Amino acid sequence: MATRKSIFITGGASGIGRAIALRFAREGWFIGLGDVNEGGMRETEALIGNGFTYAHVFDVRDREAWDVALEAFSMAAGGRIDVMANNAGIPLGGSLEENSVEEIERCLDINLKGAFFGAQAVMPHLMKTAPGSCLLNTASAAGLYGTGGASVYSATKFGVRALTESLDAEWAEHGIEVRSLMPSFIDTPLLDHSPNAKANEQIRQRVKDGGLEITPVEEVGEAAWRAVHGKELHVKVGKTAKSMAFAARWMPGRVRKMSRDNSRPLGR
């Protein structure tokens, strides 16, 4: 088994996945990238620039493809996977009645089913490098309290939160750590998308109109490093996420009122 530690990151072509890759590459880790966007992964590799990278094109909705991707990365990394960042995800906003069946199924399949498939597939690899290996799931501040105008997305992130907590219990006996990242709105290309097919407004503009904070993506990379090497189960990223976590615990009535007052769905 190689001595250089390795991390495999889905959604590694841009945004949070790229930020995690750059942060761990700075520490000398071997970086694995998984995404459907081959060009974006090549750009991430170029930014890392040290040659200790491996990119694999696959769809996280395909369970068999997970096995192929992780086995190929393990071989490239010298037989070890120390961390897997279950990060691939897509946004979906708008009221529930605005969301099409296709949009709902795609968001559930990528954000939630993909995370479960990834956890299931990577467990044998993480057992080889335990104790101290880690599954890092990207959840969201939307997994702290349901967000009006993003019910499907919120449901997927509550699911990722539940997956994290469940596997934290299940895998403790194997010495595998399980963590989640809970970022608020992060400055990534996803903010420049429309929240759904019927909307003509970018998510970024809706966030700005709401006076909400947009956190630099580099902060998520730093949070990922802290999560893997710390003890906190759910690592909140950005002022909005930290404030929401505090309020949801100590002032649930106020959070409910704010949610209702601000429930104009994204894209309206």
Rank of each mutant, 00 (worst) to 15 (best):
residue 215 T to L: 00
residue 254 R to D: 09
residue 176 I to Y: 05
residue 11 G to D: 05
residue 151 S to D: 11
residue 123 M to N: 12
residue 256 R to A: 13
residue 230 G to T: 08
residue 176 I to W: 02
residue 171 W to K: 01
residue 119 A to Y: 06
residue 81 I to H: 04
residue 70 L to E: 03
residue 162 A to C: 13
residue 25 A to Q: 00
residue 193 H to K: 15
residue 54 Y to I: 01
residue 41 M to T: 07
residue 247 A to E: 11
residue 89 G to R: 08
residue 229 H to D: 10
residue 208 K to E: 15
residue 182 M to G: 02
residue 35 D to L: 05
residue 83 V to R: 02
residue 92 L to Y: 10
residue 132 G to N: 08
residue 172 A to H: 12
residue 13 A to E: 08
residue 133 S to A: 05
residue 76 A to D: 10
residue 267 G to Q: 11
residue 150 A to I: 02
residue 104 I to V: 13
residue 123 M to R: 15
residue 182 M to W: 13
residue 129 T to F: 04
residue 155 A to T: 03
residue 228 V to C: 09
residue 242 K to C: 09
residue 164 T to Y: 04
residue 12 G to L: 04
residue 259 S to D: 12
residue 219 E to Q: 10
residue 152 V to Y: 09
residue 5 K to M: 14
residue 103 E to W: 05
residue 5 K to A: 11
residue 226 R to L: 06
residue 105 E to Y: 05
residue 259 S to R: 15
residue 153 Y to W: 02
residue 88 A to V: 05
residue 268 R to M: 10
residue 120 Q to Y: 14
residue 28 G to M: 01
residue 66 W to C: 02
residue 10 T to N: 07
residue 38 E to S: 08
residue 11 G to M: 08
residue 148 G to V: 02
residue 159 G to S: 05
residue 190 L to F: 12
residue 87 N to M: 10
residue 181 L to G: 01
residue 17 G to H: 02
residue 117 F to Y: 15
residue 144 L to M: 12
residue 45 E to T: 08
residue 1 M to R: 13
residue 259 S to Y: 07
residue 21 A to F: 06
residue 141 A to Y: 10
residue 118 G to Q: 10
residue 157 K to W: 05
residue 131 P to M: 01
residue 191 L to V: 06
residue 136 L to D: 12
residue 30 F to K: 07
residue 134 C to T: 03
residue 58 F to P: 12
residue 170 E to Y: 10
residue 64 E to L: 04
residue 145 Y to Q: 13
residue 142 A to R: 00
residue 254 R to P: 03
residue 258 M to V: 01
residue 98 E to M: 11
residue 21 A to Q: 06
residue 173 E to N: 09
residue 60 V to H: 11
residue 154 S to I: 02
residue 2 A to K: 13
residue 165 E to L: 05
residue 102 E to L: 03
residue 146 G to M: 04
residue 72 A to I: 04
residue 99 N to Y: 03
residue 155 A to S: 08
residue 57 V to P: 01
residue 56 H to C: 15
residue 226 R to A: 09
residue 78 G to E: 08
residue 74 S to I: 05
residue 114 G to M: 03
residue 260 R to Q: 14
residue 21 A to G: 11
residue 172 A to D: 13
residue 47 L to K: 09
residue 36 V to E: 11
residue 203 I to H: 14
residue 227 A to N: 04
residue 139 A to H: 14
residue 39 G to Q: 13
residue 266 L to Y: 15
